[in-house]
Design a binder for these strands. Structure first.
Lengths: 182, 182
DNA sequence: CAACCATACGGAGACAGTCTCCGTTTAGCA
DNA sequence: TGCTAAACGGAGACTGTCTCCGTATGGTTG
């Protein structure tokens, strides 16, 4: 990539990250281009679809997802608490900006979504926790990872759209956890 | 209301019901106006916000919600099956058109949403089933109706957005049911 | 049944967002 | 220094939302 192209690419992603956080996932792309000091043409050449931009914005976030899952596994208490705490973290991770939970969760399991790699990271992180509990024999047999992603993603989506706080979300996550555990 | 106004109102709702079902909740309102043979001004005078139109479209649906809940209560099998079957019905009811589950579920608990009355009908229907199970002593104590609406609504939202079929949805509803029952 | 007027109509057009096309500019190389 | 492929950016086409206001009409009243 040419140096000027790289500069613009980086600037757009930097601006988009901030704007998405402040105004939600629906923010105007022409606005983002303007704020980044480039024309709309440039933005759309680098990111043909809104989701391609979202994907770039989330790049740095992948590491955090992994770290959080690893940290969740070091928890010393009960399986139930481990699972619920992880769910709370998971919801936090996918709720960085308004509209995020819906986007991420509905792209899950769709192999040609532009944010597929992000979904995989998420799914892998979740899988780590699920696998560990399965090894412990704590989970019901039929449970599968993508199902768990969807269940928790569904709750995150509702929470996002209804602007619920953690106090309202946690009990719902507990219900799901109880339904998953033996 | 003047006779011509009533005629237009009815025609718009009739057309909207069909268009929403065919093209989803995001269909163009100017299009609906055109199909109904009225100007956009007329449509927007009757229905200032998209949700007001949605509300009118759903009017007939309220009765069905009630009937379905009543029928669910006549089920003779186990509490778990009763609950799961009701959840399946519930998901069906709110998934009449694309985008419906998200709209209905996120409006739940927001007292000044234009579709508030529809949410209340939904919540009441769900409450009937929940109350009955509570009387039977089958439910955990902390369970409340709106939470259940949100949990099931969350699953319906994900299913809607990921275009999942009943076979994929049912197991998720079972997890929630198991988490709610003693 | 004619005249009146509140009520309702409808379409032109302002506005906002998406996205493309293409003439212009420039980085990087020879 | 000159060349060219790569990249830029903005004008504008297109789509959808929503409003304003001149026009038409249903229903009432004398």
């Amino acid at each position: 990539m040419r140096a000027d192209a790289q500069r613009n690419y980086d600037k757009i992603v930097e601006v988009a990250r901030q704007v998405f956080r402040e105004r939600g996932y629906d923010a105007s792309l022409d606005d983002i281009a303007k704020l980044a000091g480039v024309g709309p043409g440039t933005l759309y050449r680098h990111f043909p679809k809104r989701e391609n931009l979202l994907d770039a914005v989330m790049q740095s976030w992948v590491d955090k997802v992994n770290d959080t899952a690893d940290k969740a596994l070091t928890y010393e208490g009960s399986d139930r608490d481990l699972l619920v705490n992880w769910f709370v973290d998971y919801v936090g991770l996918i709720s960085q900006h308004k509209g995020g939970p819906a986007k991420l969760t509905s792209a899950m399991g769709n192999p040609d979504s532009p944010i597929m790699t992000k979904c995989q990271a998420l799914s892998r992180a979740n899988g780590k926790v699920i696998d560990r509990l399965r090894e412990d024999g704590a989970l019901r047999d039929e449970v599968d990872t993508i199902q768990v992603c969807r269940l928790v993603g569904g709750i995150a989506t509702v929470a996002d759209q209804s602007e619920l706080d953690t106090a309202a979300v946690r009990p719902m996550l507990e219900v799901v956890a109880d339904g998953l555990l033996k």
